[in-house]
Design a protein around this nucleic acid. Structure first.
Lengths: 233, 233
DNA sequence: CGGGAGGTTGAGTAGTATCAAATGAAGTGG
DNA sequence: CCACTTCATTTGATACTACTCAACCTCCCG
């Protein structure tokens, strides 16, 4: 049975966008969004890939994406997870460079492509928007710097705890304390920067220590306080 | 004997700045630079420290700075080295946050403080300048992401080789192939993300393998080709 | 029901960190 | 200028984290 996918209307799309980027005029929004550029992507789909020529950027209306780089041995390092409201890939547009990351769908997503010309025009004409993008980039850079420090100074154990806390803060937990994002062990490993087996072993230890419970891919955070302490935040 | 320090004149300062940031008017430059904000700093001096309230940003006229974060155990992780022409600390100004890194002098430097109001005004009034800052930030973010991938996937050995190559590209080598930046072993370790002893041992191995020569703090790159291969670039 | 992908567990080990101690270099003050 | 202090560097010994490899299990999908 194929579920019928209801794509958002122009109004729904621009309303969502305006939640994150304020002070945009009607004509600004008309410039950015076109019905035919809105697409539904299933888990596993690739939005763009490292080295691709940049033709524009992407607004994530719903779902979850992973943004990652591929190392020399072909192993992925997840840079961040994107969720509803995030604008992806505008840095390559700005720098006129090929994509320096890849992006795949983690949870079925509705993505709107925004052509290079439109976004560039908006940045030049609307300084509020430009500044907002700049703030977002700066924030991301801060987080990247923090991540660098963690990677070089914390143990895998601490980093895994930290990633779990981070995922909780970013995607939330449901009524049963289960993380609102489902990842494979490998994806977790690619985020933490370790081997899949290490993630499995450590999660199992965390369970023994009553920090969390595991149910298939679901991770239930039963003791956030202790987990935070372990993460050394 | 105290060496007399000749601070740059307003003209020299603005000329240097204009090399990196184009299309600035006379009045823009008058807004940014004030004689009394130009200072000479000796090695080891602190420009600002993590958590400091932001009062402006800094233009590095000459010398070398290290920008670093301090981890939970008090250990430093160097994020980048700044050199002549770099604008430091404007991200905290933009985001109206306290400094998220510290900055110290590695090689005697002439630094010009630019008050928050001036830089903010310029960003708002000159979209070219704003875009240039944005491009710089994006580039830095790309580099940070690459660094993250390296930290989680490469060995200390590979990373040390990579850092040496990076320093060569950024600061150059003199006629005797000696790196134009002098660092302590600890600073190298704080850049690579490892222990001081590991850096010492690996440098010594590199010397045995005829990849470089050591003379005190001077590092002479005699075989850049092999070093690059080792870095897995 | 077979195949494939993801998950789990165990054993062995390479790579690094840590700790301790000796040596060397640089700076300070009498 | 020398004795003294302090910091940086080096080397050795040891411990341990986390990776790799291999085998096996489990679940799901067609």
């Amino acid at each position: 049975m194929i579920r019928h996918i209801q794509l958002p209307t122009f109004n729904e799309l621009t309303k969502e966008f305006s939640k994150y980027f304020k002070n945009l005029s009607e004509s600004d929004l008309n410039l950015l969004f076109w019905e035919e550029d809105v697409h539904y992507f299933k888990r596993g789909s690739e939005i763009y890939s490292e080295g691709d020529k940049t033709r524009g950027c992407y607004f994530l209306y719903s779902g979850i994406l992973k943004v990652f780089k591929t190392g020399t041995e072909g192993k992925a390092q997840i840079i961040k997870f994107a969720k509803s409201g995030d604008l992806i890939g505008f840095r390559s547009v700005l720098n006129q460079e090929r994509a320096c990351t890849s992006t795949k769908v983690v949870f079925d997503a509705v993505v709107c492509f925004i052509p290079e010309k439109s976004i560039t025009k908006l940045i030049h004409s609307n300084s509020h928007f430009a500044l907002e993008l700049m703030r977002l980039t700066c924030k991301e850079l801060d987080e990247a710097n923090k991540f660098i420090t963690d990677l070089s100074q914390k143990t895998v154990r601490e980093r895994l705890a930290e990633v779990l806390i981070h995922l909780k803060n970013r995607f939330g937990i449901d009524s049963e304390n289960s993380l609102n994002i489902i990842l494979t062990r490998q994806e977790l490993a690619n985020m933490v920067g370790t081997a899949t087996e290490s993630v499995i072993r450590l999660l199992s230890e965390f369970r023994k220590d009553r920090l969390l419970e595991l149910n298939g891919k679901k991770i239930i955070l039963t003791n956030v306080k202790e987990l935070t302490k372990l993460a050394n935040l």
